[in-house]
Design a protein around this nucleic acid. Structure first.
Ligand SMILES: [Zn+2]
Ligand SMILES: [Zn+2]
Ligand SMILES: [Zn+2]
Ligand SMILES: [Zn+2]
Lengths: 133, 133
DNA sequence: CACGGGCTTGATATAACATAACAAACACAC
DNA sequence: GTGTGTTTGTTATGTTATATCAAGCCCGTG
């Protein structure tokens, strides 16, 4: 088979890209039910897992949510800044920081395989909006 | 009032410390039901929230689990390494890395308030155990 | 082409994680 | 001791995620 799954992944990715900000799996599911009323959670989770593995989508561990990659397929783990006011997410890549992090964790012989780096706070536009208030 | 909540927090902390590895809120609940059979989820979540805020407990965002702080109340966010084989967690503090991270995220005016840094992989002892296999 | 083994996908059900909302208990001021 | 605000307990429900099995497809064999 295989075809059906790829179509689903493409649809999920399109929805996440249209949105731009984080979506829960169930929000994606809600969107897709317009066109596929029978859709069940495992289908979405499978599509998200495949996309996440491949790098087209990132999972925000601290939000239990997903977002389309903004920089179109990088190799390294990304650094995600998350505005707690408006939900905007920015993505950064820093091999240096990743190396520093691996070396800290590696002090005691730990072998890293996956890095989760998420920074919560307030984005520039929410910050300036607040200044005016 | 206030008293009962503090007792609950102390019991939760004691359970987490005894275990040493990550526990879900419901695992803690299960333990506590031995002595307090009526206990409901919100009680545990309140105790965990208070402990987390105060720094005695850290939440592992990528596991939806909690662990007692190993280094007894530091101010900065910690770096947590998580062995995906045995569940062992180590905790590191690195103001330098935090500063680097804040400066990366701050490039576009973002103001960080909370850092989530979790590294998954294999700990030293699981790594050497695998070598022998 | 019919069949069967091995895989991918779909559907049902349920498990795991978390919080909203309200009721009861308590503390403290008066 | 009564009123008032706060903390805790309880019930119910909402949200996130996965186990499990059934159905469909692919493809090689005869
Ligand atoms: Zn990316
Ligand atoms: Zn914002
Ligand atoms: Zn700590
Ligand atoms: Zn290990």
């Amino acid at each position: 088979m295989k075809k059906r799954g790829e179509i689903m992944q493409a649809e999920v990715l399109a929805i996440l890209r249209r949105r731009g900000t984080p979506m829960s799996a169930y929000e994606v599911l809600g969107q897709l039910r317009d066109s596929h009323p029978q859709l069940a959670p495992p289908t979405i989770y499978r599509a998200l897992a495949a996309l996440t593995e491949r790098g087209g989508v990132h999972r925000l561990e601290s939000l239990n949510a997903f977002i389309a990659c903004k920089s179109d397929s990088h190799k390294d783990a990304s650094i995600l800044s998350i505005c707690d006011d408006c939900g905007e997410v920015e993505e950064f890549v820093s091999p240096d920081l990743l190396k520093a992090l691996s070396s800290i964790a590696g002090q005691s012989g730990f072998a890293p395989t996956r890095h989760v780096i998420e920074v919560h706070g307030q984005c520039a536009s929410c910050g300036s909006a607040q200044d005016q208030a």
